[in-house]
Design a binder for these strands. Structure first.
Length: 366
DNA sequence: AAGCCGGGGGT
DNA sequence: ACCCCAGGCTT
């Protein structure tokens, strides 16, 4: 049996028959490389506090490590323990997350913290981790490895890329079928527990610093001699991707309502983007929006100027016409009047934060 | 299986 | 412009 077969059966043979130690040697090479040349300055790599590992892994979902670092520090400074997080107000948790994106993660984290506090104990193994909302297979695997030293697989974007190249996986890595193949590979090539930590960290570090998406540095790769894609010079062919669809454009209208130093904000509920964040009142139709708020706030004056807010999400482009109003007073309601100085502690979406910063609370921005 | 959910940096 | 990132959940 030849090693490095791209059929999954070959990979099983690789380990189980033990006649060929290629797989284990590759894993050891990766672990050794990680200890020598892996990333070591990331703040969540210091200890083994399961809470901190969990927090980092959730923040790192679909988010580059460099972007996470400041959020991780600030979040931990404010919520140093899972108990502190469980006691916190939702708004404050979201405010700490503001700008990081995928806000459901923060809501799930908070919900999980309450579950953990109610139970009185943090999860101690993969199964219990996996039961937390927002912790899928890969995140549970990473936490189980780093916090508990369990022998579990991960399949983040780094591991996907490394394994897809190593075994020249033909299916699209972002398809369900491709993921199934990659999971089976990831689970079948796991080394013994004694090196599971540096091995797992090595997969991530290699993917992030050497096995790059475009033009990987195969000359510096400890796995090059085991890599099927490299053997044929086809590194850039992997991982295969599904063809991407084009983004639709959506139109909406928002109201920037200012009274003195304060701006009217509404908490977004429902199913769409930015759920749980404070934003400007919105309606798909500008005229409806104007009528609606003139009724809610008597004496509202519409300013002649208006802004155009453009923002791209992962799956659509948004163009918002921002109508500007001045209010005479600040009546209470299903909204909040927020002073300019309180914006930094407010859970705003990034584009709204930028808009309000540029506006500087005067309602006549840009 | 496909869609939804953010934002920013790299190319 | 287009790409993708320490993915998970809902439909």
């Amino acid at each position: 049996m030849k090693c490095g077969n791209d059929a999954v059966g070959g990979i099983y043979n690789w380990r189980m028959r033990g006649e060929c130690s290629h797989g284990l040697r590759a894993a050891r090479a990766l672990a050794e490389w990680q200890k020598r040349e892996g990333r070591r300055n990331l703040p969540w790599q210091k200890g083994r506090d399961p809470y901190k590992i969990w927090l980092s892994e959730v923040m790192l979902q679909q988010t580059r490590a460099a972007a996470v670092v400041p959020y991780y520090r600030n979040f931990l400074a404010r919520f140093p323990t899972v108990a502190a997080l469980a006691r916190a107000e939702e708004d404050e948790v979201m405010a700490q997350w503001s700008g990081l994106g995928y806000y459901r993660r923060a809501a799930n984290l908070h919900r999980s913290a309450k579950l953990v506090a109610a139970r009185g104990a943090f999860p101690r193994d993969w199964e219990a981790l996996r039961a937390l909302p927002g912790v899928g297979k890969s995140t549970a695997g990473a936490i189980a490895v780093f916090a508990f030293g369990e022998r579990r697989a991960i399949l983040d974007a780094n591991a996907k890329r490394v394994l897809a190249r190593l075994f020249a996986v033909g299916g699209a890595a972002d398809s369900a079928a491709g993921e199934r193949v990659l999971w089976r590979i990831a689970e079948s090539v796991l080394p013994p527990r004694e090196i599971i930590r540096p091995y797992t960290q090595g997969l991530m570090d290699l993917g992030a610093t050497v096995c790059l998406r475009a033009n990987p540095h195969c000359n510096r790769c400890p796995l090059a001699k085991y890599c099927r894609a490299h053997k044929t010079g086809a590194e850039n062919e992997y991982p295969k991707k599904l063809p991407r669809k084009n983004k639709p454009s959506r139109q909406t209208a928002m109201a920037l309502i200012v009274c003195g130093e304060k701006t009217l904000l509404q908490k977004r509920e429902g199913k769409g983007v930015w759920r749980g964040l404070w934003s400007l009142p919105e309606n798909a139709d500008a005229e409806t929006l104007r009528k609606q708020w003139r009724k809610l706030l008597p004496g509202l004056r519409k300013m002649p100027r208006r802004l155009i807010l453009r923002h791209e999400f992962t799956h659509y482009k948004l163009t918002a016409e921002v109508l500007i109003f001045r209010a005479k007073q600040q009546p209470p309601g299903d909204w909040r009047w927020t002073a300019q100085k309180d914006l930094p502690q407010t859970a705003l979406p990034s584009p709204i934060r930028k808009l309000l910063a540029a506006d500087n609370g005067k309602g006549n921005a840009i």
